[in-house]
Nucleic acid binder design. Structure first.
Lengths: 222, 222
DNA sequence: CGCGATCTGTAGCAAAAGCTACACGCTTTC
DNA sequence: GAAAGCGTGTAGCTTTTGCTACAGATCGCG
């Protein structure tokens, strides 16, 4: 029951009808993921819809030689749409999912979710909205990947992912994984950035020194 | 009215209720695209849902230096989901769309589509299914892009896009555009393929000579 | 304090990809 | 049948990226 309460902190699950709520309450399963736990493996059949309650999941692909690359993140209140996708089309999960930080996840069994989708406008909207958002993120990522060099992608990543104090707390190894490249490349690029006074680096973190300089790197035209 | 008939060749639009049909009939607009016509520009506000009746649309991104890269194709009976996406979230269109061959497209105005979505289960399913499919395609593409070299991507593209007779009728320039690279790179790779007896080339076309050899290139493990 | 583990900084070499330039052949067009 | 346009084949050079290797810095822990 506690998990149902957690889930109802989020908008779409508050508007459900009484019987839908009961249905949801019966099937719902909670799942705790420690940092770096693998939540879903590639090729695994998907058993339901995943809603992140707290923490953060990372969806990534893995190439034969071992390089990872982040496709996108799932933050609290968001649903793992890839799972949704597989759910509606009976596909195997096409990527890997790992907990970035310790996370709590609610698992709605496939059959239950499908029923909810048929009945509840809120769930239909949630589904469409989640899918749309993912499409948009994937498009942007795909565009970034082939219109820009690692230099630009790195600058962009630092700008987008850094905390509000302008500091990105992440090791170079992790950075490399997100960008789908190697630590050496990241170190090389960061050396340039430091030389130009754009950022400063220390163990486990990167601090932005020249915000606008970085932005110019990302979009040279403006 | 003729366009409505065309549209109803496709499953989801046959199951509509009487009033939905009327609503659809009133707003529907037909659009002819000649080969190489630009159907949608990047940044353009989206005025409705696009359903391809005949021909083929190509969705691609364009980088500052002029290189194109195909994101995915839209074949007859399919809907341009990106447009859907923008429609539901009030976004500007994030890519370019061009007619690969002469195409006929039905344009369902945004307001009409939203109403249909609220009422008709068939349209809800269509929407979710279309979005799901796109997500899947984008994921695959994204995975391909950063797990494989141009050599593998080219081999893959030839395998997937060639006609049933094993011939891909496309210039090297076009190939390069789809892969997001330059003609010279494509020519260089094809030279290797020809040397290994995998394909043969002639003006405007590439013929597969060794199907399994090509497949081994794409997925070396199997 | 010492030790192992982790993270960063650098260097050098090899492979991949991009860019420029040009020769040649086939089509279309005037 | 000459000229222009398009498509292919090739070469050489530069930049970017990937891989291997190693040195030094920092951290946590017993």
């Amino acid at each position: 029951m506690k998990i149902l309460d957690e889930l109802q902190r989020f908008e779409p699950f508050r508007k459900l009808g009484e019987d839908s709520r009961t249905l949801l309450g019966q099937g719902l399963v909670g799942k705790q993921c420690a940092r770096a736990d693998m939540a879903l493996h590639k090729g695994q059949p998907v058993s339901g819809a995943y809603v992140v309650l707290s923490g953060r999941l990372r969806v990534f692909s893995l190439s034969p030689n071992g390089t990872e690359a982040t496709l996108y993140f799932i933050d609290p209140g968001e649903t793992c749409v890839l799972a949704l996708n597989c759910l509606f089309n009976d596909l195997l999960y096409p990527a890997w999912v790992q907990a970035e930080t310790a996370s709590q996840v609610a698992l709605i069994p496939g059959a239950v979710y499908r029923k909810l989708f048929e009945r509840e406008t809120a769930i239909q909207n949630l589904t469409v909205h989640t899918l749309s958002t993912l499409v948009f993120r994937l498009m942007s990522e795909l565009e970034l990947v082939h219109t820009s060099h690692h230099k630009q992608r790195l600058a962009n990543f630092i700008l987008i992912q850094s905390a509000s104090d302008g500091v990105l707390r992440m090791t170079q190894q992790q950075l490399a994984q997100h960008l789908g490249t190697t630590r050496e490349v990241v170190a090389r690029l960061l050396r340039d950035f430091v030389a130009k006074g754009l950022v400063s680096t220390c163990r486990g973190a990167i601090a932005i020194r020249d915000l606008f300089g970085l932005r110019r790197l990302v979009s040279p035209g403006e």
